[in-house]
Design a protein around this nucleic acid. Sequence first.
DNA 1: GGATAGATTTTCT
DNA 2: GAAAATCTATCCG
Length: 207
Amino acid sequence: MPDSILPLSFYAAYDTRSLAEKLLGCELVHESPDGVTSGIIVETEAYLSDDPACHAYNRRTARTEPMYGIAGTSYVYLIYGMYECFNVVSNHEGIGEAVLIRALQPVKGIELMELRRSLIPGKTAPKIRTKQLKVNELCKGPGNLARAMGIERSLHNNILLTGGPLYIHDREVQDLEIGSSVRIGINVGKELLYRFYIKDNPFVSKL
DNA sequence: GGATAGATTTTCT
DNA sequence: GAAAATCTATCCG
């Protein structure tokens, strides 16, 4: 069934690492008041409950509470004081695991993405970007992706379903060439090959 | 092309 | 009070 919104049963059908691979090639859509943006998911990372890099590795806290919700819940958090990151919660209720979406190939609303990315974040002196971004830079990396898509913490702890503003479409291609590697920007769990990406796709954040 | 420093604030110790 | 699932500008070769 091409062109259908992923049902909750999809998110619940796989373990976290499998879901991270299955989400590749799917299209993330945000229907915001400003307009619709979307992009093909080309890069993900898995965070498991027995993995020291996972936010839910230690105590269950207020911030990570959505990670313990049902698969298909959104988990959005602020990192380094400036950037938001978007995750899809995975596994069963009560188990704190999620998939970080790291890069998109823009499809809809490219002009809106450019507009949202035209300001460089910064409290003291938010700067206007001087150089025009290339399309493959708009959603490169989790912080940039969230900004281009207009995903903020107001979308934290929502269910990715029909009727909501944020959801994911099924992918059409079944046989994707998928690569894996260690994850980016972490200091623990370095050796785990929990990063997945579409091979030879120029929208991936890093080789 | 790669390496490095600085921005910024929430969260947890 | 330190660390953090990041990004950008700047320096250097």
